[in-house]
Write a protein that binds this DNA or RNA. Sequence first.
RNA 1: GGCGCCAUCGUCUAUCGGUUAGGACAUCGCCCUUUCAAGGCGGAAAGACGGGUUCGAUUCCCGUUGGCGCUGCCA
Length: 493
Amino acid sequence: MTVRTRVAPSPTGDPHVGTAYVALINLCFARKHGGQFILRVEDTDRTRSTQQSEGAILESLRWLGMSWDEGPDIGGPHGPYRQSERGESYQEHVAQLLAQGNAFKCFCTAERLEEMRVAQRAAHQPPHYDGHCLTLTAQEVTEKEIAGIPSVVRLKVPSEGACVFDDVLRGRIEIEWKTVDMQVLLKSDGFPTYHLANVVDDHMMEITHVIRGEEWISSAPKHLLLYRYFGWNPPQLCHLPLLRNPDKSKLSKRKNPTSILYYREQGYPAEALLHFLGSLIDARNDDQALIGHGHSTRERTRLLLEYFSAHCELERISVGGPVFDIPKLRWLSGQWIRRQAPSEFLQSLDEWGYAWPRAISPQQREHVARIAMERIEVLSDFGPLVEFLAEAPDVSRHDMALEKLSEAQVHAGLQGAIEALVPLDGASWNQAAIGEALKKSAASMGFTLKDVVRAFYIAVTGKPTSLPLFDGMEILGKEESLRRFEIALERLH
RNA sequence: GGCGCCAUCGUCUAUCGGUUAGGACAUCGCCCUUUCAAGGCGGAAAGACGGGUUCGAUUCCCGUUGGCGCUGCCA
């Protein structure tokens, strides 16, 4: 039997990093075993699902280099791959359950259910459907339907015994039937709930391994019960740990950026996010030797996926919920950026959508890239860092104050620098010559370059820390550099 | 509250009964150095607690505590 896995996102919001994490494991496991990986859209919540969200999810997964063998965009032998388009199948299966007596119609109103739950909570009982409609006769059901009372279909659950199943990661799990609720399978709008649609589709699509988040453990008995009612063999179940906020709660956008789009917009390379997610799956993927292979994003993500897949073992996934550690991701991002050749970095910037200021000529870009790329961790750090090359800073007298030198000394230092730079001819205006001139000038006044250089940084870049000064001045050119020194000098008066 | 899952440095983890408990991020220090980074070197930092089992437990079992999840006509 060939391995078939799936990821089944619900298009109700921004593409979540947790979806990518689950998708990645499913993809790698399928590839490792020469099987297929399917993308299925679970859009049964008609009030929250959007076309836009679905598009963003697919696009985000593709951005990370993932691809699927069957899905709503490419079709496949078990389509459609969008649950909203599979209504007939659910209706048939619900009819079967009803006919077999494994499910029942329920006409309870939302108000009654709410009252019931409040009462149960007050009595310290677990909130459960109380079976109100379970005893309705066929006659009564028909009457209510004729009267046009809306209904749902609920699952019948054994009252005794326990559901025992094996989880690939956690071993034997036992949950008593009496703790399992009579879950709604078909909503009053005619759409199935997750539980029904999921089981029917997984079976129809011949999924062999259901690898999903831990949050589904509690409802696994319902799913297994459905497989039993239908007479189907259930797939292997593997419940993954949930990604966490730093405070260990389930990763949420209230506490952390969870959208893949956010990380892309911030300029995290796709390969960095992919590498990070991979490292959460298996510690062997947390390997610095992997960084830097490939000459394009496409190739880099492909090689990572290949590596992750080659030794993917579900059993090695550790079950403690990992904190989504953004500092580590940032570091990885910086590593991936830095291991590129400057020309590749330029291309990455371009793909990310960076718009170069006019003042920086195409010929200068590689030089800028070389000095900037080792000082950033994400691409959005780049703009602020090179901004001074395009626009002169507005420095104040206060900015120029130094700890080690008096104002008079700073003044002299700037003056001396100008005098040292003026004689340099245009042809020798490069970082080495500039550095030498500035060092010599400082020495001639009895202090080291280190003593005054902070003032120079502020004069040229507007900030005490920036890109290497001499390089910055070379790129700015002699005229503009001297102009900035002179402005700074004026501000000191 | 009920049910379930989980538990090694701050974080991600290695260890699959015997280790000076290893690595990475973060952090601290030193070196390098025109600032800041990057890079190099080094430091500090962990088996939640209590019982068993065993010659020997981080590792196996039980309990406690803690964290998390589920408890919807959301997934």
